[in-house]
């Protein structure tokens, strides 16, 4: 029996984890940026969605291809240039070595709160049941094939294929 603060009986309280809900909520995330800071929103949201039992697909396109390209995925960069949110003079960002410095600093901040680097984050997303797809046009433009990409990428597919696979999904473009 359950009682409320007033001592009246109340129904047993068990959280609803949505186990009985019909499967169906789906999330599609299009990752189009290759900057370190712009890689994380998609990864964090994908991870959160998977943790909530949402079927999640990520499509890597244009500069976002760097996130799944083996030779580059560990080496994404962060620049102050064009980013007023650093609240530092823009001229500083153009000085030699500033992008490397800003990248090191951001990587340290991410690491310090226990968030993994990009390859390890992708590994966690795949382990959680997430699906990774590479964009056909980007692969063709950059002359890359499956052997150049992170192993867990399920395939290089066209934009139309991705739209088809994610029918009914909520969509995020980053």
């Amino acid at each position: 029996m359950t009682t409320t603060g007033t001592g009246r009986p109340a129904p047993g309280i068990v959280p609803d984890f949505g186990d009985d809900a019909p499967a169906g909520r789906k999330l599609a995330i299009i990752c189009s940026k290759g900057n370190l800071d712009m890689a994380y929103p998609g990864l964090v949201l994908a991870n959160a969605a998977l943790g909530e039992g949402v079927e999640t697909h990520l499509f890597f396109t244009f500069w976002g291809f760097d996130m799944i390209t083996k030779s580059r995925m560990r080496d994404l960069k962060f620049t102050m240039l064009g980013n007023t949110a650093t609240h530092l003079p823009q001229g500083l960002g153009g000085l030699p070595g500033m992008t490397a410095l800003a990248t090191r600093q951001l990587k340290k901040q991410i690491h310090d709160i226990g968030v993994p680097d990009v390859p390890e984050f992708l590994e966690q997303i795949v382990a959680s049941g997430g699906h990774l797809w590479a964009c056909r046009m980007s692969a063709d433009m950059m002359h890359l094939d499956e052997s150049d990409l992170y192993e867990a990428v399920e395939g290089i597919i066209s934009a139309a294929d991705f739209i088809e696979k994610t029918e009914g999904a909520q969509l995020l473009f980053i």
């Binding site: 909530e52 226990g114 966690q124 959680s128």
Partner: peptide, 27 residues
Amino acid sequence: TLRRVSTVAGVPIKELFALFPKKPAKK
């Protein structure tokens, strides 16, 4: 968090999803 359980306690994420389906962290 799930990540902390996997990295610190050493239980793989995949296993956590199998043991506590759909919403492992909350469950």
